[in-house]
Design a protein around this nucleic acid. Structure first.
Length: 263
DNA sequence: AAGTGCCCCAACCGCGGGAAG
DNA sequence: ACTTCCCGCGGTTGGGGCACT
């Protein structure tokens, strides 16, 4: 099969994105959408491959991204959905508005998986909570095992300090950008999540200048709807998501993990 | 105060699926 | 029907930064 070569083109930049690149990417997508990721970097004048641009947008720059702490509800939801869906992070992310598959994947691997592991061995063994109480150097557990213990806390605040240190976050964007409601997606994480996000927003008032700067850039006739034509980020939940809604309801009604039916 | 170890997250890599020609 | 191209996904990794010694 002819697989499209990616990123091996000479001269393409890799590694962390600079604020300038972010601005260029955001501005370009706001103006033109992202009809073709592959062509986008060239059109936008970025020395990145389309894949990298897409990832950056989806995981970081998209205005509807929610950053900061995962609420207890969200964490529980992830755990439940993982029970149902396995490592289908994108499907899980579809049930958590504002969260990306990458973020969920990270949270799972760094927190939730370990929370479950000890819980399966020692039922409900509580551990001191909080990142700062992580029990390091417990020997056998290895590099991540200590974090597992810490993450086993009933409510583990997740990476607040770190997220706060991010160079670019959107916090205020989630509400400031016209965004269709995510349909019925995430219906069961609505109210509480909303409130937790509100508090998170207060916590994460970082670099708003980036967004205000970016959004205030002249957009050549770009109005609020300018992003929508190409922007799947604002698309309504898919039919697959509806299917999952069904199974999710089944699951939630039952209150226990069930075997995942073929979707 | 300096050194070391560990955690977390952003980003990369490679593959599979689907659409278009 | 076949080939090519692009998108999206899941797994993995490297570096920054924090906590501890």
């Amino acid at each position: 099969m002819g697989r499209a070569p990616c990123c091996e083109k000479m001269g393409l930049k890799k590694g962390p994105w600079t604020p300038e690149e972010d601005k260029v990417l955001v501005a370009h997508i706001q103006r033109h959408g992202h009809g073709n990721w592959r062509a986008l970097p060239k059109q936008a004048g970025l020395l990145r491959c389309g894949k990298s641009c897409r990832l950056r947008w989806i995981n970081y720059l998209r205005p509807d991204i929610k950053r900061g702490n995962f609420s207890k509800e969200e964490e529980d939801t992830i755990i439940h959905l993982h029970d149902l869906l396995g490592n289908r992070w994108s499907a899980i992310a579809a049930r958590l508005p504002g969260r990306t598959d990458n973020e969920i994947k990270n949270v799972w691997h760094t927190h939730l998986k370990k929370r479950l592991a000890p819980a399966e061995q020692v039922h409900g063994a509580a551990a001191p909570s909080g990142k700062k109480q992580k029990q390091k150097r417990e020997g056998v557990g290895g590099r991540r095992a200590s974090a597992a213990a810490a993450a086993a806390a009933p409510v583990a605040p997740v990476s607040s300090e770190r997220s706060a240190s991010s160079s670019v976050t959107e916090s205020s964007m989630a509400s400031s950008v016209a965004e269709p409601e995510h349909g019925n997606a995430g219906s069961f994480v609505s109210a509480k999540e909303e409130s937790s996000f509100t508090s998170a927003s207060e916590e994460f008032q970082i670099d708003e200048s980036f967004w205000s700067e970016t959004l205030s850039m002249p957009l050549d006739g770009c109005d609020d709807a300018a992003m929508e034509p190409h922007d799947s980020a604002f698309a309504a939940p898919s039919a697959a998501a509806d299917d999952m809604d069904y199974w999710l309801r089944v699951f939630m009604d039952a209150g226990e993990p069930q075997e995942l039916p073929q979707i």
